[in-house]
Write a protein that binds this DNA or RNA. Sequence first.
DNA 1: ATCTCTTATTGAATCGATTCAATAATTTGT
DNA 2: ACAAATTATTGAATCGATTCAATAAGAGAT
Lengths: 350, 350
Amino acid sequence: MKKITIEDVAKRAKVSKGTVSAVINAKTSVKPATRDHILEVMKELNFRPRGMAMNLKNGNLDKSIGIILKDINYPFYTSIALGVSKYANSKGYSVVVASSNDSHECEKKLTHLFSAKDIKGVIIAPVVEGTAEIEHLFRLKMINYPFVLLEDVKGIQANVVAIDNKNAIKQAVAYLIENGHKNIVHFAGPPQSSHTQERIEGFRHAFSESSLIFRDEMIVSIGSDFDECFKKTKDYFKNLHTEDYPTAIVCFNDHQALAVILALKELSIKVPDDISIIGNDDIYYARIYPVPLTTIRTPQHEIGIKAAEILIRAIESPTLVSLERVFLSTEFIVRESSKIIKTPSLQKAN
Amino acid sequence: MKKITIEDVAKRAKVSKGTVSAVINAKTSVKPATRDHILEVMKELNFRPRGMAMNLKNGNLDKSIGIILKDINYPFYTSIALGVSKYANSKGYSVVVASSNDSHECEKKLTHLFSAKDIKGVIIAPVVEGTAEIEHLFRLKMINYPFVLLEDVKGIQANVVAIDNKNAIKQAVAYLIENGHKNIVHFAGPPQSSHTQERIEGFRHAFSESSLIFRDEMIVSIGSDFDECFKKTKDYFKNLHTEDYPTAIVCFNDHQALAVILALKELSIKVPDDISIIGNDDIYYARIYPVPLTTIRTPQHEIGIKAAEILIRAIESPTLVSLERVFLSTEFIVRESSKIIKTPSLQKAN
DNA sequence: ATCTCTTATTGAATCGATTCAATAATTTGT
DNA sequence: ACAAATTATTGAATCGATTCAATAAGAGAT
């Protein structure tokens, strides 16, 4: 099946290409009769004008940026997208979002797509599971395509807006220890995720800076899929004597924390009376949960705004080549899913 | 500031356009020394190849479709996007998502953007607040651009995949009446939303088919913004004598229902013992809530799959012009936020 | 040093629309 | 009925890349 071009339409309608073009672009100069006839022919031939060709002549005026997220169904990411949209729209940019579903292959495809479509730049929450593959990022650099990463990726110099994962968890654990918790465990995320590793390290580090000592059993592999978390949490407690129950669980993320709370409910373990639960991320639903979640807030909105700001600057000032690396701080938010076991001992000011 | 083209690079590097093109496309035939030199010049001039021009020559091979949602932060919509992605990816299509934020202006801009970028087709959850503006949809028809609507829009013939809102609510109310509820109210959504109106009508209709009679006070305008719902719910009950409390509230959507449950908790009204709460949509969080939500499930995943299926068929079989209109049925899902007041009376089978 | 055989590079033609000055057709005024 | 004014239509040049056959440069063999 041959491709239909504006020329085919022009021939069939016995007019010039220029007139057909005028009809497509709703120019008023076309006589209604001609116009109707051309529209009919367009329909007959099922003519779909090529957007690429249309835009080539006039430069490429639209303002648009893209975001590639790992999971469009996790509110954490859509909140970032909201921040991006807010800033971008205020600067006249449209925003398109795509989900890489944690697949390198998909992320690569999407960066190609965005650049090929002359989307002006892209913000990427990069997939870094396993060995990070970054040739596609190098390609973007080669073609001087502006992009901002939402996670520091080893091996490439780029604009980055991110948070300090390790320190975030440390904050939380330090708080628990400070408030009298002694038996604390970390429910770790999916083994292949880089975040999982970072958070485990943060957890260990908090212990090394305290009077308590770290033991390997404190790290429990739970994952982040809801049903899996739910099941593994129940299994964990079934294999434990009541007197060995931890007094606090630091979760991989809020989603996992929600699953854990639900599992505990089924086991008739009270949150926070029996066990304190600490989330991570502060997704929208953490706040509106019946047991509002104590969590480590990552400033999703601000990340989005900052990333958009850097991206648009890179797009609009092509001469400015300096890279920006911004690390935003997390905030520990105490809500109702955690409690204090004893008031902290007085400390010397410092 | 002048636009840099491949020709500028070629001149500066003292090679032909063909060689520069070969470098950009990572062709192996280029001698490393030449290649490096050209890359340097590209960097110097900050040359960004125009994707449009690149694609013009070879046709436009990529497979991609778009989705325009009203709110990328409401899980209902991202679940639809997930369904779309699933089907589209299986057919080799990439998916890009955009949020219209309930703005006609934005929706229009985005349809332009997608068609201009030669995204092959688009699925639209159309904004229909106020007077639906649909000239942009007519434009899509004119250029024979394939699209599928996720809501029936008056005044235009198009592919549609949707559900029957009115009937969905009717189902729920009928269930409540059947199970002994007599004092039922509907917490309506934002006044300007078309869904709000449809759901109110469904609610009334359910009454007209029962032995109970409808009264205007049964419709309470609550909205769907979380904080607003929360506040208005509390106000509603504060102005009500305890003996006048409804035994069941049919909510506009799950999000509202969650806000209502939280407000009731603060008022020490027990769900479902004192009041049954019925949601609408069955978002992901409805299921994993500590009081799992009784709700009217809209098959989000299936909607996405069906819409993608129709869209891709329209893209790939341009001659097939027949329009499809699919209405999927909702399912009433009883979970723990509602209870039966008395067992239903025996009925004649039919 | 010369002739092959590879390997690199060139550049004119091409993709499919838009543009706009030139020209044709139609309407208006007298 | 004719000139002038207005409105519609034409078509060659253009946008910025890719392509690929033709050609040039470099490597190896004698």
